[in-house]
Amino acid sequence: ASVAVIAAGTQGNIFATSALRSMRFLQILRMVRMDRRGGTWKLLGSVVYAHSKELITAWYIGFLVLIFASFLVYLAEKDANSDFSSYADSLWWGTITLTTIGYGDKTPHTWLGRVLAAGFALLGISFFALPAGILGSGFALKVQEQHRQKHFEKRRMPAANLIQAAWRLYSTDMSRAYLTATWYYYDSILPSFRELALLFEHVQRARNGGLRPLEVRRAPVPDGAPSRYPPVATCHRPGSTSFCPGESSRMGIKDRIRMGSSQRRTGPSKQHLAPPTMPTSPSSEQVGEATSPTKVQKSWSFNDRTRFRASLRLKPRTSAEDAPSEEVAEEKSYQCELTVDDIMPAVKTVIRSIRILKFLVAKRKFKETLRPYDVKDVIEQYSAGHLDMLGRIKSLQTRVDQIVGRGPGDRKAREKGDKGPSDAEVVDEISMMGRVVKVEKQVQSIEHKLDLLLGFYSRCLRSGTSASLGAVQVPLFDPDITSDYHSPVDHEDISVSAQTLSISRSVSTNMD
């Protein structure tokens, strides 16, 4: 405001104040949320940038038409019409005319000016109207692209899951042992070998009828009888010197917790746990005396209480009078009846079946994303299906024409109403129809010849004498029936064969 007042002088105070007050009108834009329509302006900018070359070309040609039209109309009207006294007036008329506004304040009066105005109007309006069409088509394409992008975003994750499931299904095939990355992934998420051994031990116990592997080994086996189970490696608790092959000598807290839970599941009659010990102070733990958990001091820290809870689970003690015997301790020893080589084939089979199920689920979810969402998608899918159906029908028609023997030239002739090819031409065609016709002709010829021969033979049998045999009239074959199959017997006289037959029969009768 200060700059405006200084620039306008003393009389500019009122002007500056009114100008600043008129800017209050811009507050109405906040009512229509114009300040939060950044996406709309961004869309407009992207459309203009995408079609910038077309817009520049249309505007450039339109500007050239405007300059030439205004100049030529000015030359034609400057002497006869006072409205075109300057080139600026003519340029104003050209702008209003070519933009199809047409105020009518300035019009050419001479015939030359009117002809020039009409010609440049028809030429220039087309170029001035091009930017509107370019922007409209650009907006339509952009909206369609955003629509497809939205659908693509919805299909991206199911497609990625389907590709991942397909690759993992491919890589978990037993015949592709060189693909090891997927197996490394499952090695990292699978439970430890100790848990798998416990699982298979329970399965084997159920197969043995509820007997433990130790009891199965204690059962008497006759001499020479084959053992029911192959000899396997035996594993004891981590306190002993022997372990399962492939295990580490260090046992983690999870393994100890699972070991304690498995020992508690063996039965309360074979294992008696004394009350857990509780320390009397955060600094020292008295293991010899058993106290109640309700006497825990409230001033303990979080670490002390955590250690106390761990001691409740991981440090059970047995009383002296209830101490288990050596046999019970041997039964409680952890027996590992299986090795990694025995378990891994079954584990890989389970993983393979899981990968198949996940692949089928991913495939079903991806197919669900291909379903249409709204009416536009339904129409688009219907149009695509219609085009596909037309293509299939056209391909089927082409194959039928190839089989029947109607080529493209014959199809055009039928469409024009011309006469089709004759039967002889159809026979000569190298097509399925021509071959079928040729075979039918040959079969008819053979059938006719057989009928003639059978009739001749029956007449010979009825006559009974050589004289009557020679008097029999043998009809000749019709050459038209034989089609294109020409037998060497067709052109010979059958009477010669009949005479030869009669001579042979007379000779045979004389010999008798």
Rank of each mutant, 00 (worst) to 15 (best):
K449R: 10
R168L: 12
Q381L: 07
D322G: 12
R462S: 12
S395G: 10
Q297L: 15
I257F: 15
L169P: 04
T172N: 12
Q397P: 12
S431R: 13
F366Y: 03
R352H: 14
S301T: 11
T182I: 11
I354L: 01
L453P: 13
M389V: 15
K376T: 11
Q381E: 11
L179P: 14
D374A: 12
M389R: 15
K394M: 00
Y186F: 10
K367Q: 15
L179Q: 01
F308I: 08
I163V: 06
M432T: 13
V216M: 11
T280A: 06
P372A: 13
P268T: 13
L390P: 15
K394R: 12
A181V: 11
R265L: 02
L390M: 14
Q473P: 10
G409E: 13
K394E: 00
S242Y: 13
S171P: 07
M389I: 09
I354V: 13
L370V: 08
P316A: 08
Y184H: 02
S333C: 06
Y373C: 11
H202R: 10
E368A: 12
W167S: 12
W167G: 12
S171A: 14
W300S: 12
D374G: 11
D377A: 10
W167L: 11
R392W: 05
S468G: 00
V350D: 15
L370Q: 08
L360P: 11
L450M: 06
D374Y: 01
V296G: 15
V507L: 14
I403N: 06
D173G: 12
A165P: 03
K449E: 05
G405C: 10
R406L: 07
I379M: 13
D173Y: 00
I503L: 08
E330V: 11
E368D: 04
Q397E: 13
T369R: 12
T369P: 14
F359S: 12
S171Y: 05
D374E: 05
T172I: 13
R406W: 12
K416N: 13
D374N: 04
S319F: 15
K412N: 10
T369I: 09
I393N: 05
I163F: 08
P372R: 09
K358T: 15
Q263L: 15
D377V: 11
L357P: 13
I446F: 02
P345H: 14
R364W: 12
R168G: 06
E380D: 14
G407E: 13
P372Q: 05
K394T: 01
I163N: 08
K332E: 15
A166P: 13
S192C: 15
K416E: 11
I163T: 06
K394Q: 03
R399G: 13
E321V: 15
Y373D: 11
D377N: 15
G405A: 11
P372T: 05
L396Q: 12
D173A: 15
V507G: 11
A362P: 14
F302C: 06
K394N: 13
M278K: 14
R207L: 13
Q286R: 10
K412T: 12
E321D: 14
Q402P: 05
R414G: 09
D484V: 00
Q473L: 15
P372S: 14
Q397K: 15
T369S: 11
Q473R: 07
G405D: 06
E368G: 01
Y373S: 15
R411W: 08
V287A: 14
D377H: 12
G420R: 13
L360Q: 00
Y185S: 13
P316H: 12
L450P: 14
L198R: 10
G405S: 08
S171F: 09
V400E: 13
R392L: 12
D388A: 13
I393M: 00
E326Q: 02
A166D: 02
K449T: 12
D374H: 08
D490E: 05
P475L: 13
R364M: 13
R392Q: 11
K412M: 13
K412E: 03
R352P: 02
D418N: 15
L450R: 13
R168P: 07
W167R: 05
I503F: 14
K367N: 03
F366C: 15
Q381H: 14
K376E: 12
D173V: 03
E285D: 08
L454W: 12
I393T: 14
I393F: 03
R392G: 13
H386D: 15
G405V: 14
R168C: 11
R411S: 05
W167C: 12
S383T: 15
D374V: 02
D377Y: 00
L396P: 15
I446T: 01
F366S: 15
Q164P: 08
P372L: 02
I393L: 08
H486N: 10
R168S: 06
R392P: 03
R371P: 15
Q397R: 12
L370R: 10
L357R: 14
Y170D: 01
T294P: 12
I393S: 09
I163S: 10
D388V: 14
M259R: 10
L370P: 09
D388E: 11
L390V: 08
M389L: 12
K367E: 05
G239R: 03
L396R: 13
S463P: 04
R313S: 12
G391D: 09
K449N: 12
R505L: 11
R399P: 12
I403S: 14
K367M: 11
